[in-house]
């Protein structure tokens, strides 16, 4: 079953996506002939049971993986045909990542973690710091800039991760179970923050979640089951 977002020209257009993995000589089909559009400025959630292919789908539309069959088009560009180097450069310029376990570098302070993606750009050192500080201000962590991840709560770490995701001003933010490791109050904070980024800054956001409360915040929720989208 296919699902296409109704509003305007989609930012993301997936067509005929099939993804297979080979494990121990056995081929496993994770996604099957799937179509999906995500509108520009949308906030969408992918839900489904474990093994339904949610994270795989997220990886494909974020340029972390390539489909076995089908096309992935983001902002008018086919990313499924890009070389590894071009794809890395494309991700660094167009995608912000938020992970369940935050994935901050423990040896870097909050502001240095946020600055990390900017190391790949020609931006000057002082400007990098300024942009990182701005991103931390957006997520409400101005008073934690010099703190290391071990000195932060889980919610604060995830805020730093979100600041790192937006510091490059990406078109798209993808979040894989962004509230999975958080308590309810912290999870609500993070979801509110994502909503704000979507509403006030116009960021297109796609999240994978098991959390119905998280899915409720999204404008559109896609349900996956056995590699197919359910209506």
């Amino acid at each position: 079953m296919n699902e296409v977002s109704p509003a305007g020209e989609p930012l993301i257009r997936l067509r005929g996506i099939t993804k297979e993995y080979t494990r121990g000589g056995e081929t496993l089909r994770v996604l099957e002939n799937l179509d999906l559009d995500v509108a520009r400025g949308s906030f969408e959630a992918l839900m489904g049971p474990s093994g339904s292919g949610k994270s795989t789908l997220l990886n494909l539309l974020a340029g972390l993986d390539a489909p076995t069959q089908g096309t992935v088009e983001v902002d008018g560009k086919r990313i499924d045909q890009m070389s590894e180097g071009k794809l890395a450069s494309w991700r660094s310029n167009h995608v912000g990542f938020v992970f369940q376990s935050y994935n901050l570098l423990p040896v870097l302070t909050a502001v240095e973690n946020v600055e990390l993606p900017l190391l790949l750009t020609p931006v000057a050192s002082s400007e990098r710091r300024k942009r990182a500080e701005t991103a931390l201000r957006v997520v409400g962590l101005t008073d934690r800039m010099g703190h290391y991840p071990r000195q932060l709560s889980g919610g604060q770490e995830q805020r730093v991760a979100i600041a790192r995701a937006i510091v490059n001003d990406p078109l798209l933010i993808v979040a894989d179970e962004p509230t999975g490791d958080l308590d309810r109050a912290s999870a609500d904070d993070i979801l509110r923050l994502l909503e704000t980024l979507n509403r006030d800054l116009g960021k297109t956001i796609v999240i994978v979640t098991h959390d119905p409360a998280a899915a409720e915040r999204a404008r559109i929720t896609h349900h996956l089951d056995k590699g197919k989208l359910r209506a």
Partner: peptide, 16 residues
């Protein structure tokens, strides 16, 4: 490993 994977995800190349 996870840190390198994260760095690769946000755009760092294998050579980096």
């Amino acid at each position: 490993t996870s840190e390198f994977a994260t760095m690769r995800a946000i755009g760092f190349l294998p050579k980096h």
